[in-house]
Design a protein around this nucleic acid. Structure first.
Length: 885
RNA sequence: GGGCUGUUAGCUCAGUUGGUUCAGAGCAUCACGUCGACAACGUGGGGGUCGCUGGUUCGAGCCCGGCACAGCCCACCA
């Protein structure tokens, strides 16, 4: 069969993915093997995978494939998240384009659109996961709004409510005026910026024309002022006890109050108190029993209570109010001010602190076991300690979690209200009615009574925060909540490793631990691997708005999935941000081709096999033995690195093994001459090594490796599930001999290069050595690699040759060409100087009494050996120099 | 304001308990090369005072203190 010039990923990828699926390699059922469970961080159902996902999924696939090939029953559960706010926003925008206003739709009608939308676009991410080669168990695909999942969320809500861990109440929360819903604290992102501080003077209600000045960033909220607060120790305002002032523009009369909270040194030392629109003011208001005047509507416009600029947007109103205040002489000063503002994570608008009745989870009690699990080391966070402190701090200072959202897309809160506003929490209206009747003393109501009662109940309109469903993910994907203790949940839970972005450590990771500890009394996963943020070349975060996030499918089309996986992994040290550069994808593509070309070379030999399996020729023995040992050494290294989640380094190690050791050295060493035959034993070993290399690389680059595995020879199995064999310990002596051989070859090549010897020019090589026997096994390789037509051994210098030294041995290169020995001499002199410097540093150490007294014996012995070796080497170099001149 | 992390070659990063001259890898760069796998390549080379500064030690890229710069997280000072 004719092999193409370069590796062509497209057809290969599709072919193998289909094959793996048809063989059921990715689908997992509990059995006698240990489970290796990974649950995918479910991406937004209507989103697309960005580079951050690509990194995440690749890492997971590498771990899962490696486990699958190492005796584990690997189970990787895919799925998606309904992402309530994000998705609802998209659906609202979509129907708006059709000319439909969400407000004109019933809840049911809206949800119909939402599900249609989900069915239409929900497949995109699954397709991307597939194209990337992810070995997920598609039979287990879970969506956070699946029926069982929905039930699980409701069940947990009711349970926590009954345990007193969920409550409903009016609190100051973060309000998103664009989405018109409450947000949790975690959904607010703060940005530093330069704002303006306005100094306003309020007229005092005293006999004289007197004013008190305050400073504010938000003049549009003055209509909600219900007090002015000063520090009781501030002498400037001591005379104002019991005094009142008038709010500018609307002339509301408000009291001057006194509280230590106010910093006399800041601004004017007087603070306007607006309990409805600032968390601090709210707390002050509670303490001093102040009136709350809410001047902003849920959509961010001024309310009727504001009295002026009613219906205008808060920011437009601000401008106008500033102008009016200025015209009327209330604005006394304007200054620049460094501040930070909260933005909604989803809609990007400035968040409005707002008092509102919402549902909350009490976090303190849930946080304690979750904290312990990590502090005790039951859950290990990678990399290292970097995120441990963050995790700890958050849990130690955790605040209650606002879980209600004023949306329709999500799990509707199972609370039911009667006409009087009395509330019952239950899964269905009937159950709610039953509870309500029980409360009224009717313990055994008739069906019709229940029915009648239930019809009068109205369910809470709000849905739950998306993360209130996501935190059950590791359990409910195996129905661990809806069918507690079922066989699958027992087998697969807790998961092995969670791979996710560090940005959702609070949103998701910490809460999953809480839920796991609460409902399984067990951690949800043993290891957490945090990937870094993917940035562009300039170090900017990849985002849609910047348009700097490449399209994954486009990248796969252009470079191939393996190359994309390679590119993102090779530049991705654990936990560090990675600068995404297509350059590294190119490197991946080149790597594919390199392997492909090695395959072509080996296939060329297939027809030229000579002899039978048992027959051996001494010529290439060393290459075979050396590579086998080299392979064993790297396998051990890679295993160690992967256990520590140092995946990038493991990949680099494999890369170098294949490119350098296998292609550049080994294949050259065993390569037969032009149109010469190759020993069958050498050929067969080479194929085996190649297979093992492909196996080692397979978790990282599944497609190209599987393809080559099958092209190498007829196979009975697939690489995808081929189990790793036990690794043998490498022979250190063989390895060092290999290193020596490489060094000799490089040194001689360098000398050839410097003397302008063309590759075609043959040389005669004379070796002066005390260990002639060590060359017997590598002589033929050496002569081939340096293009020597003859190698002989000598006991003295050979005149008119190029001389180089490696360790204690000297090599005389004789060529037909006229030689220029000056550069060679320079090199030797440089080396000599270098060796002498080294010698003096070693001698200095050895003559230092304290070193001799304190250093460990092996260190001392090493230094002595160094000294002896260096002396010998200096002698060799000096002799070489004298033979030149 | 509190906390965390980083600073090593032009770029992106390794550097395991301090001990070979330990200063590394990949990419980029330069020279030479189209020889029957591979120019998406081969062979070879050049390139860094390990942010600065004190200290501990026989010995520091690595340990400790201080400083500078960068990034991230957290925090109710208008």
């Amino acid at each position: 069969m004719e092999l193409t010039k370069n590796f062509e990923p497209k057809t290969v990828e599709n072919k193998w993915y289909k094959h793996w699926l048809s063989q059921g390699y990715f689908s997992s059922k509990p059995d006698g093997r240990p489970a290796f469970t990974v649950v995918i961080p479910p991406p937004n159902v209507t989103g697309v995978l960005h580079m951050g996902h690509t990194l995440n999924e690749t890492v997971q696939d590498i771990l899962v494939r490696k486990a699958r090939m190492s005796g584990f029953n690997a189970c990787w559960v895919p799925g998606s998240d309904h992402a309530s706010i994000a998705t609802e926003a998209k659906v609202v925008a979509m129907i708006k384009e059709k000319g439909i206003d969400k407000n004109d739709l019933s809840r049911e009608e809206f949800l119909k659109y939402a599900f249609e939308w989900k069915d239409k676009y929900g497949g995109i991410i699954y397709n991307q996961i597939e194209r990337l080669g992810c070995s997920v168990d598609w039979n287990r695909t879970t969506f956070t709004m699946d029926d069982h999942y929905y039930k699980a969320v409701i069940k947990v809500f009711i349970d926590l409510y009954n345990k007193g861990l969920i409550y409903r109440g009016a609190r100051m929360i973060n309000w998103d005026p664009a989405a018109k819903t409450a947000l949790s604290d975690e959904e607010v992102e703060y940005k530093e910026l330069t704002g303006k501080l306005y100094h306003l003077r309020y007229k005092l209600d005293t006999a004289k024309e007197e004013y008190i000045s305050i400073a504010t960033q938000r003049p549009e909220t003055i209509m909600g002022d219900t007090a002015i607060c000063v520090n009781p120790n501030d002498e400037r305002y001591a005379h104002l006890k019991g005094a009142f002032a008038f709010v500018p523009l609307i002339n509301r009369r408000i009291p001057i109050i006194f509280d230590e909270y106010v910093d006399p040194a800041f601004g004017t030392g007087a603070l306007k108190v607006t309990p409805a629109h600032d968390i601090n003011d709210y707390n002050l208001g509670l303490k001093h029993n102040l009136e709350v005047v809410d001047t902003i509507n849920e959509d961010g416009t001024m309310s009727a209570a504001a009295q002026i600029y009613i219906g205008e947007d808060r920011f437009a109103a601000r401008k106008k109010i500033i102008k009016e205040l200025e015209e009327k002489g209330f604005l006394t000063k304007e200054e620049e001010y460094a501040t930070r503002m909260g933005y909604s994570q989803r809609t990007g608008v400035v968040v409005e602190p707002r008092i509102s009745t919402q549902w909350f989870v009490k976090m303190k009690e849930l946080a304690t076991p979750a904290l312990k699990a990590v502090v005790d080391g039951d859950i290990k966070i990678h990399p290292g300690e970097k995120f441990l402190a963050t995790y700890k701090y958050w849990l130690e200072n955790v605040k209650d979690w606002c879980i209600s959202r004023q949306l329709w897309w999500g799990q509707q809160i199972p609370a039911w209200y009667d006409a009087e506003g009395r509330m019952v929490v239950a899964e269905t209206a009937i159950q709610a009615a039953s509870l309500k009747l029980q409360g009224e003393g009717i313990s055994d109501p008739s069906a019709s009574q229940l029915e009648a009662c239930s019809l009068k109940l109205i369910q809470d309109a709000d849905v739950l925060d998306t993360w209130f469903s996501s935190w059950l993910w590791p359990m409910e994907v195996f129905k661990g909540i809806t069918e507690p203790g079922n066989a699958e949940a027992k087998y697969y839970y807790p998961g092995s490793v969670l791979v996710t972005g560090q940005d959702i450590i609070f949103f998701w990771v910490a809460r999953m631990v809480m839920a796991g500890m609460e409902y399984e009394k067990q951690i949800p996963f043993k290891d957490v691997y945090f990937t870094g943020m993917v940035r562009d070349k300039q170090g900017r975060k990849m985002s849609k708005s910047l348009g700097n996030s490449p399209d994954l499918l486009d990248l796969i089309d252009r470079y191939g999935a393996d190359a994309v996986r390679f590119g993102i992994m090779v530049s991705s040290p654990a936990g560090n941000d990675l600068m995404f550069d297509e350059n590294s994808l190119e490197q991946g593509r080149n790597f594919n081709n390199k392997i492909w070309n090695a395959l072509k070379l080996v296939k060329m030999w297939e027809q030229r096999k000579r002899g039978s399996e048992g027959e051996q020729e001494t010529r290439n023995d060393f290459a075979l033995i050396w590579f086998e040992n080299r392979l064993n050494k790297v396998k051990t290294e890679v295993d160690g690195l992967m256990k520590q989640f140092r995946l990038s380094e493991a990949l680099k190690t494999i890369y170098s093994l294949i490119w350098d050791d296998f292609c550049s050295w080994y294949l050259e060493w065993v390569k037969p001459g032009f149109e010469q035959p190759i020993d069958a034993s050498v050929y067969n070993k080479t194929v085996i090594y190649f297979e093992e290399l492909m196996q080692l690389l397979h978790p990282y680059m599944p497609f190209v490796t599987e393809e080559i595995y099958h092209l190498l020879k007829e196979q009975k199995d697939d690489l995808c599930i081929k189990q790793f064999a036990e690794v043998k310990a490498p022979d250190q002596k063989i390895l060092s001999q290999g290193e020596l051989l490489k060094q000799v070859i490089s040194t001689i090549r360098d000398a050839r290069n410097k003397n302008q010897l063309k590759p075609k020019d043959t040389i005669t090589l004379f070796i002066e050595t005390n260990t002639k026997e060590s060359y017997s096994s590598i002589e033929s390789i050496l002569s081939k690699q340096v293009n020597a037509n003859e190698i002989s051994f000598t006991k003295e210098a050979i005149a008119n040759t190029i001389v180089v030294t490696v360790e204690k041995d000297k090599f005389y290169i004789s060529a037909e060409k006229e030689l220029d020995t000056s550069t060679l001499k320079d090199d030797l002199l440089k080396d000599l100087e270098h060796q002498k410097g080294f010698l003096s540093s070693v001698e200095k150490k050895l003559s230092n009494e304290k070193f001799v007294a304190n250093a460990k014996s092996e260190v001392l012995a090493l230094e002595q050996k160094k000294k002896a070796d260096t002396l010998a080497r200096i002698k060799t170099i000096e002799e070489s120099l004298s033979s030149i001149s």
